[in-house]
Design a protein around this nucleic acid. Structure first.
Lengths: 158, 158
DNA sequence: TAGGTTAGTCAACGTGGTTGACCAAACCGT
DNA sequence: ACGGTTTGGTCAACCACGTTGACTAACCTA
């Protein structure tokens, strides 16, 4: 039987988590835009991460991201048009088309990692390194492990 | 100059925040579905919250949610079709159309608040009340105040 | 009363998701 | 070696949510 604390209603917690996520992502993309990647959207960073330096295929990408292969293919199309990804034939399997990062895509991915490190550093300066680490540890215990589903738009809207 | 901790790369923090948010919202809607609201989507809960028990107009709703009045109007259309909202004429201003919660919508809103309290309670049992309160306090200090923009789909995808 | 502002709607479009259908290539058991 | 199944990619249609631009009706005010 829940005995809510009137001072801390439960609905605030998800809003704060979302706000934290959003400020980090907004700050990332403000800085990415300044560093030559103004067209990168929040979703794109996750896709580049999922493609990785080894490359992958649209089907596998969809699997990693938790969306259909068609949805993954369309997103790849857009990132190809933006110059972040490229397709190549697989010499060993004529059905497969490898999706790879272009140099521009790799640049964006590397800069994202550096910027994220800097943002976390900023949090540790404000809150203290132990508090940030505690937040990470706590969140890990209350969320399912190996979490990497990025179907955020479809998930949120249905 | 960021001096990242190799054990705690910065990109993990936003993923954990998103995972925490998503876990709470998923659990909420699993329970809401069980309690007679299977059609409610994550976005809808925020909209019902923004409409509130006093009702509002589409323009004002768009303002609260940080989206255009057209987008707000379309979302209201869908929630009217689902039976959660209703429109009524304003006797004092023929231009305005009041958007109000139906009894079904009010029921969903109240149940959401109760379920959220229960979910927060579950976190306090796992982590301890002090840790959960610390997470809330910490997130409040690193995120902008009075935060309530819910243009999540458009924000995430561009 | 004329002119500007505000609320709502319609239309066109972009992005991201879905399912269903289809083809070609690869795999596999006989 | 062949025929059936599985797999990868694409196309088409559709839905949810966002945008901007254009328009009407109603209100407000100088």
């Amino acid at each position: 039987m829940p005995t809510p604390e009137p001072q801390r209603p439960g609905f605030v917690l998800p809003l704060l988590l979302l706000a934290g996520f959003r400020t980090l992502i907004d700050d990332l993309h403000t800085e990415l835009a300044r560093q030559g990647h103004p067209e990168l959207r929040p979703l794109h960073g996750f896709v580049l991460q999922a493609v990785g330096t080894d490359g992958t295929t649209a089907s596998e990408l969809g699997h990693r991201l938790g969306v259909s292969k068609q949805a993954a293919g369309k997103t790849v199309d857009r990132l190809v048009a933006l110059g972040y990804l490229e397709r190549a034939d697989d010499s060993r399997d004529a059905r497969r088309k490898l999706v790879r990062l272009t140099p521009h895509g790799l640049d964006g991915l590397r800069r994202s990692a550096v910027i994220f490190d800097g943002l976390r550093q900023r949090w540790t300066q404000t809150l203290g390194a132990d508090r940030v680490a505690a937040i990470e540890d706590d969140l890990r215990t209350v969320t399912p492990a190996n979490w990497f589903r990025l179907d955020v738009p479809g998930w949120f809207t249905g």
